[in-house]
Design a protein around this nucleic acid. Sequence first.
DNA 1: AACTGCAATATTATATGATATTTTCGCTTT
DNA 2: AAAGCGAAAATATCATATAATATTGCAGTT
Lengths: 217, 217
Amino acid sequence: MGKHQNTVGSSTYEKIKHDIIFGQLVPGSKLKLELIKSQYEASVSTLRETLNRLASEGFVLAEEQRGFYVTEVSQKDLIEIAKLRVLLECHALKASVESGDDDWEGNLVAAHHKLQLMEKKMIAGDVSKKETWKRYDWEFHLAVIEACNSKNLLDLHSILYDKYLRYQMLVFTFRGDEAAQEHHKIFEAALSRNGTEAARLLEAHIINGLEHTLAAM
Amino acid sequence: MGKHQNTVGSSTYEKIKHDIIFGQLVPGSKLKLELIKSQYEASVSTLRETLNRLASEGFVLAEEQRGFYVTEVSQKDLIEIAKLRVLLECHALKASVESGDDDWEGNLVAAHHKLQLMEKKMIAGDVSKKETWKRYDWEFHLAVIEACNSKNLLDLHSILYDKYLRYQMLVFTFRGDEAAQEHHKIFEAALSRNGTEAARLLEAHIINGLEHTLAAM
DNA sequence: AACTGCAATATTATATGATATTTTCGCTTT
DNA sequence: AAAGCGAAAATATCATATAATATTGCAGTT
């Protein structure tokens, strides 16, 4: 006993979203229902529910009566997403730094520590744990803004982060030491409650990542 | 011939979304599948697709294996939404004013003109056309920011606008002349390419609407 | 008599396979 | 080439079966 039974719907949602973000499902390709039915072991209706959800988040394109496609990628789209991420994440950061309490600080310290450990391993050459690194990066960025006091903002940011991540995974080349140092500086500025400086550093971090990814596309 | 056949899916989506925004479906109420099946004349599967879409946009709450509920409303949520709308719409406005071409100007003039006519009628006492007014208000706000050159931004804004609108409809009391004047000033500033001023006016417009709605909740 | 815990029952959500529409694509004809 | 036709494939919708949750009723206990 124990593991709480997930519904078929939610687990296929996770799987397909994962496969889009990590590039197993290639941009622009058609998601033929009968074909992916066998791949993901779910019925047509269940798949349609999933694909409709992913469509309204923007990972899938739903063409009326013509089926579903993995959303295309483009440099323009990436630039839009990066800019939006800057806008929302910096805004959230400033609000979070202003109102974060001790729990927030504790959580942030923990998230930064875990990310740093992971980054050391990756800089040392262990690239095997791409997915774990991704999780720690996410947890760090979330920890910074978590005290922004706006569920709506965090929800929007979460989707943008995933879209940005998809592009990073598409051309995966680890920025290594550079990104690690940026994370560290953001961490320090946030912890010392310097919201303006932290936001400046965060913006540079995202834009550096953008340029790194654009160059590799 | 002529009228393009809509799918059952897309038309129930429109209907349910409409009924949530305009308050026919009351906040927090449960959306029992069998019950709304007859109301919206669609099968369970089709409804589930629709409700999943609405859930990921935030109009519906999907509780795993416990069904679907109309999203609750709260003052806190409204404040979050208004602030986000300010953040995104002002950002989009500045970008749009900078890069809008003659088509953009033409479209904006037309949208403003139609809105103004409608507002005159409503100030004169004809409140019958709430839904038409809503459409013109939407078309005006969209026309202002449409040249921002970011589909991602426009998509996010569209959902936020609808969420904000839902609160306005919930307590519907027309702000009349005041709002009309604000629209006019935003229009003039945008047309004269004064992005900073237009953004300032837009922010005040949204915050005034927020306070008007909060006071009536 | 009121309360708690458990089992039987009813209700509801989830998932499936079958059917009805619509689109796509190759072939024929002009 | 372009338009028209029809077979094949894919999507949209539905009715129904299965699995989960909520409710009810009944014992046993306080």
